[in-house]
Design a protein around this nucleic acid. Structure first.
Lengths: 136, 136
DNA sequence: CTGTATCCTTAGGGATACTG
DNA sequence: CAGTATCCCTAAGGATACAG
């Protein structure tokens, strides 16, 4: 059955797709931390539970934000990786604005601060770089 | 007791503050729909329940995103309104990027589309206009 | 390594009645 | 009008065991 939205508002539309406490963290892991595998996501600081990770990966795939990629080079262990779709990569500006907002509210750790500084310096360049890295 | 964050990541920081299905809708109502009162928020299309609205207003106030304003002109009925703080107004760019993302995914209603179009045309101007309207 | 399944607890949320 | 309070249910989430 198809998802019925509470309204046609674009903010609400987005919230119903990734407006929970975990989805954007997975996207963040892919964009900023070069994480691609199930175990990568499990290792992140926020300590997502396996059942939640599983359900979020499924939903993000269903909504066309991430996609499974099967590494065909290795035969023995099927290596599954997740990457952003085009639609997913378009979330990069959203992530950056969120980081900029948070950066104004409190001190962040060094690697995060480096990204924030870069965004302040030239947002478009940062977006392009991240997009390229992630689409490739 | 103070809130303990799952991590120091700026994305996570933001998600723990407004990463739920309702908080950003309240901010949206203030920014784009000129809503300011409890009953205004209740009337929005998504039909928030009174207990949830109450708890979200409280949390948004605690986290410094909105503030109560008591209309002193009228004496009989104490008119309570909510407005964005400076910190809250800094969420406008986040809202706009979210709207732009959603606008790429599907058709939105006319008034939303008008804002999206304006954002595409000149993001900075739109942000300034909204900020001015909301801070004033 | 990539998940599912299960159990259990808590948080979120809908409906509605009620209060200053 | 601006909320609180209550009841009750469902979804989210943590912990852990297990399967391909």
């Amino acid at each position: 059955m198809e998802h019925v939205f509470r309204s046609d508002c674009p903010i609400n539309f987005a919230l119903e797709i990734f407006g929970d406490k975990w989805s954007l963290l997975i996207v963040r892991d892919i964009v900023f931390a070069n994480k691609t595998t199930y175990s990568d996501f499990l290792e992140s600081n926020e300590k997502i539970a396996t059942n939640i990770l599983s359900s979020r990966l499924k939903r993000l795939e269903e909504t066309g934000i991430i996609e499974k990629r099967h590494d065909s080079t290795r035969k023995t262990k099927t290596k599954v990786t997740y990457g952003l779709t085009q639609r997913g990569a378009e979330l990069i500006p959203v992530l950056i604005e969120i980081m900029l907002w948070s950066g104004k509210q409190r001190e962040m750790d060094d690697e995060a601060q480096a990204i924030i500084d870069k965004a302040k310096q030239d947002k478009q360049v940062l977006i392009s770089e991240l997009r390229q890295k992630v689409v490739a």
